[in-house]
């Protein structure tokens, strides 16, 4: 188990390193004159040269990369080229917003999708058909469009829920929760649809295994069969789906935040992208990938705990 975990940890670290390096190299080599972009058309050649020197843009690319990498390892991702705000502090301000949406969304997804998927697999009938139709609808409708429709109905027309804005949890938990209802609802339609479908498939697959028949032949209770044996076996594939959903939700949240004017990393990412703000983008990419790696490791641990066979792999 430890070896398995270390293996995953090492490939995670390699992933972060590869993505960061690729982003840095491609962005630095893509040409253009960042110093000129920052100062605008009105700046003199001297000013531009001075700015380039200040940002270290006149150094050879490998030296610049080395400098970035060594300070990044200490947690210092430099400052935004355009706002001069340290990358780490802007991320620290914005990430909690995005994370609260994504974490609430993934928990809601896990709960509802499990209930729907298992019920569909066991009961079949109308709920089974519903899950299958829902899977297509959830796949077909972009979550930001669902968000737009929800805003139009519940916030603009009915004025039941706030259309925009975010209240930090420690300021007012109930307002925090109310503000999350629409963004989370928009995000989870798609993830619930596809996860429920996967849970349904995994549960049906387990229900048809030989050992389920043998367990039934031993006369154990229906509850024990379903909640102890079937769910535990179906959990590993479901967890894998959830880890993929998490990656998707991070991206989905970036888009959703625009609809609800939430002060998460969405606007930061869009601005940094359109301006070509190298330190900001690198910081974002690294933090995102690290987050994904951590979530995958947690899922691996959970899978290993649930499924003894995975511990050997």
């Amino acid at each position: 188990m430890i070896r398995f975990f270390l293996n995953r940890l090492i490939s995670g670290v390699v992933l972060v390193f590869v993505v960061a390096t690729l982003t840095f190299m491609l962005m630095s080599l893509s040409g253009g004159n960042p110093a000129r972009n920052i100062l605008g058309e009105g700046a003199t050649e001297e000013q531009v040269a001075a700015k380039a020197a200040e940002l270290g843009l006149n150094l050879p690319i490998f030296e610049r990369y080395w400098n970035w990498l060594t300070s990044a390892l200490t947690g210092d991702f430099g400052s935004s080229w355009f706002t001069n705000e340290p990358v780490m502090s802007s991320l620290a301000n914005k990430f909690p917003v995005t994370l609260s949406i994504v974490i609430v969304a993934i928990l809601v997804t896990a709960l509802i999708a499990t209930v729907l998927g298992v019920t569909a697999a066991v009961r079949r009938g109308w709920i089974d058909r519903f899950v299958q139709v829902f899977a297509v609808i959830g796949f077909a409708l972009p979550n930001f469009w669902v968000a737009l429709v929800l805003v139009t109905i519940f916030a603009v027309t009915l004025r039941l829920l706030p259309a925009t804005g975010f209240t930090p949890f420690d300021t007012d938990p109930s307002k925090w929760a109310l503000g999350l209802v629409l963004p989370v609802a928009a995000l989870v339609t798609g993830t619930i649809a596809s996860t429920a479908q996967q849970v349904r498939g995994a549960t049906i697959d387990i229900l048809e295994r030989d050992f389920v028949r043998t367990l039934r032949s031993r006369g154990i209770s229906k509850q024990s069969l379903l909640f102890k044996h079937v769910l535990r076996n179906a959990a590993s594939p479901a967890l894998t789906v959830l880890s993929l959903q998490f990656v998707g939700l991070l991206g989905g949240a970036v888009i959703i935040e625009k609809v609800f004017a939430l002060p998460g990393i969405g606007s930061l990412a869009v601005n940094a992208t359109t301006q070509g703000d190298l330190p900001q983008i690198l910081g974002l990419v690294v933090v995102m990938v690290v987050l994904v790696v951590i979530v995958n490791l947690l899922i691996d641990l959970a899978t290993g705990w649930l499924n003894p066979k995975a511990r050997v792999a």
């Binding site: 990656v247 991070l250 940094a272 983008i281 987050l291």
Partner: peptide, 14 residues
């Protein structure tokens, strides 16, 4: 295991 949207955004910035 790459966060797709963020990678695409980085590509757009390039």
């Amino acid at each position: 295991s790459m966060p797709g949207l963020i990678i695409v955004l980085a590509v757009i910035s390039i």
